[in-house]
């Protein structure tokens, strides 16, 4: 009977720990979002989207970093997506079981979680040091390096889910393999591949570390990609660590904008993915 009691007690303890751990984990999400909404909304106004970043002590907005982030993200996706889709296609369609695909899969998974600051150093060495100045291009390319593994992974996963019967049907009416991939497999996997791209955008829109010493920062309106370009995360980093109240407020507002954008992207991506699953 004593043994029974001990086992029962241990079980109750473990169960309450499990419930407690879950509440603990969710509490952080609530705490972080609550503070972010509170601090961010109090500084949200039209000026944030129409004015440039101010010098310390005066009012201003976040127009130039928002524009810079949008431009660099767009270029990064434009470079990284085709590359990622093609590489994922090779791994799922041509070399599913060959050695190259195996190695690429392994390396890609490592790149997927590689520290982003190291990617910043890489692009610094390859582009900034060679060109002699910081530039928006370097920032965009470093973001593209982060996009590639995300897109490779989702493309491969989604193409593998496409039933082989579809491929066989296409082959049996004489469709060449490349056309089969583009006209049949891509269409069947489209929702999942779009999800991958959205997740990649969500991932890079908050990335700060690789931009710190590639795109640097720019206090003024500039979309010249051969010069330093401001970006939202870098401005948040700089402003949050400054002693000025105005700047700290703008940092919170910028943080709110990024978080809302990222959450919206991941919710859209998720609903796309689940729509596919249920259909």
């Amino acid at each position: 009977m004593a043994l029974y009691e001990t086992r029962r007690r241990r079980n109750v303890l473990a169960k309450s720990l499990a419930v407690g751990a879950t509440i603990f984990g969710l509490a952080w999400l609530v705490l972080i979002l609550a503070v972010l909404l509170w601090e961010g909304f109090s500084g949200l106004s039209l000026a944030v989207f129409t004015q440039m970043t101010p010098p310390p002590g005066s009012a201003g907005g976040l127009l130039n970093p928002i524009a810079g982030s949008l431009v660099m993200t767009t270029i990064a996706v434009a470079i990284g997506t085709p590359l990622g889709i093609l590489a994922g296609t090779y791994m799922a369609e041509y070399g599913r079981y060959d050695k190259l695909a195996f190695v690429v899969r392994f390396i890609n998974d490592i790149l997927l979680s590689a520290p982003s600051i190291v990617i910043g150093l890489f692009i610094y060495e390859v582009m900034v040091a060679q060109m002699g100045h910081f530039s928006g291009w370097a920032g965009a390319v470093s973001l593209a390096v982060i996009v590639v593994p995300v897109v490779v992974r989702t493309t491969e996963d989604m193409l593998i889910l496409v039933p082989d019967t579809l491929r066989e049907a296409a082959a049996s009416i004489g469709l060449p393999r490349s056309l089969m991939i583009r006209k049949v497999a891509y269409r069947a996997a489209r929702a999942g591949m779009v999800t991958g791209v959205l997740l990649a955008v969500a991932r890079i829109s908050g990335e700060t570390a690789p931009l710190l010493f590639t795109a640097l920062n720019n206090q003024f309106w500039s979309l010249d990609l051969n010069a330093p370009v401001a970006s939202l995360p870098v401005v948040i980093f700089q402003f949050a660590l400054s002693p000025y109240k105005d700047w700290q407020q703008l940092a919170w507002t910028g943080a709110l904008i990024i978080t809302l954008a990222v959450l919206a992207l991941s919710i859209i991506a998720r609903s796309l993915a689940s729509a596919r699953k249920s259909s």
Partner: peptide, 30 residues
Amino acid sequence: GDIAFRHLTRAAAIVVLLILGGIIVSLVIG
């Protein structure tokens, strides 16, 4: 077209390896 597409995807897969190689080489040189 078929051969070209196959080689294109293969090249893209190799680019992924080159990225890793580039990271290591550039860090060592730097």
